[in-house]
């Protein structure tokens, strides 16, 4: 009898711990606010930043295998059509991101993360907070007048030039 109660208590503890863990994980994911722009903006039309993704999020845990069904609310007075929309997987610099936006009553009621980077310690640290929006390009020279130049401290310029010249002479 005592053994059965013990077993029950242990399994109850594991279940409770798991529920707390999942809801905690879920909350972390919902913290993610700013999204990189989807490559095809017809799939997710202009996902609003910070505020709107936070307050109306549904309580169901987020998972790639169980996408939230499209809610059927009668009134639509917002700018979006109701339903669930999945964006393409986009390279977010530190890994791929794929989101699903759920529109209900014309408004975004949830943004689910189907993919997000979590393979490294640092990525996890970044993911638990709002995700920034980053862009990339190959550098190229921009010409034009400037008043000042920002660069790494360059006291050794003269030294390097002098050394180079010395080395040239040494050849």
């Amino acid at each position: 009898m005592v053994n059965i109660i013990k077993k029950l208590l242990v399994s109850l503890f594991i279940i409770v711990a798991f529920v707390i863990y999942t809801s905690f994980k879920n909350e972390n994911q919902q913290e993610i606010a700013v999204l990189p722009p989807p490559k095809n903006n017809q799939i997710i039309p202009a996902v609003p930043t910070t505020t709107s993704t936070r307050e109306p999020v549904t309580s169901a845990p987020v998972s790639a295998s169980t996408p939230t069904p499209a809610p059927t609310k009668p009134v639509n007075n917002g700018q979006y059509k109701d339903g669930s929309y999945t964006g393409p997987a986009a390279d977010a610099f530190y890994g791929n991101i794929q989101v699903q936006a759920v529109i209900s009553g014309g408004k975004i009621t949830a943004v689910n993360f189907l993919q997000y980077p979590n393979d490294r310690e640092t990525s996890i640290m970044i993911n638990t907070q709002a995700m920034p929006y980053l862009q990339q390009e190959a550098i190229q020279a921009q010409s034009g007048n400037v008043n000042i130049v920002s660069g790494a401290t360059d006291t050794s310029r003269a030294f390097i030039e002098s050394l180079n010249s010395a080395l040239t002479q040494a050849k």
């Binding site: 190229q140 020279a141 007048n145 008043n147 130049v149 790494a152």
Partner: peptide, 23 residues
Amino acid sequence: NNKNQYWRIGIRNPFNRYQNVKI
């Protein structure tokens, strides 16, 4: 600045110190 513009700052090209990659 003396042209009545906000100050213009060049971001130096790390691969070529005589070039800016952004102003």
